[in-house]
Amino acid sequence: MPVKLSLQVNGKAASAQIEPRMLLLDLLREELRLTGAHQGCDTAQCGACTVHLNGKAVKSCNVLALQAQGGEVVTIEGITPADGSLHPMQAAFRDHHGLQCGFCTPGMVMSALDLLNRNPHPTRDQIREELDGNLCRCTGYHNIVSAIEAGAKAMG
């Protein structure tokens, strides 16, 4: 039986009539048309679907949309300034060649921002450790680590 879900997404109120089995990722992509969070593995391994739920990074393919009832979700779309320019962390990924195909990038950026919320000046080792849950098939990670380091500096 469909259930009513109300929550905040990227600072705006959103609501939908959904089946309880709908995943948070499907709510974002299919109902709200926010396609920045990607479905990579659909088994909680790759981190391409990472968004923030109540201020913390989660894998949205492994969370029911209803687990976000009354909560606040921020996706990659929610971090870009209104004028369409890039967030400093996104800019750092571009400047440091931290992506190739770009499939993992939204998840990488959301994980990086979660890390900086707790540790504004991480070391390279800490960045690598914190990216445990984000896989990239292209870059070999080196430039992602450099991008996050530079993004952290740019954000102060």
Partner: peptide, 8 residues
């Protein structure tokens, strides 16, 4: 696991 798993 990883940070996202530990948050849930």
């Amino acid at each position: 696991g990883d940070r996202m798993v530990r948050n849930m």
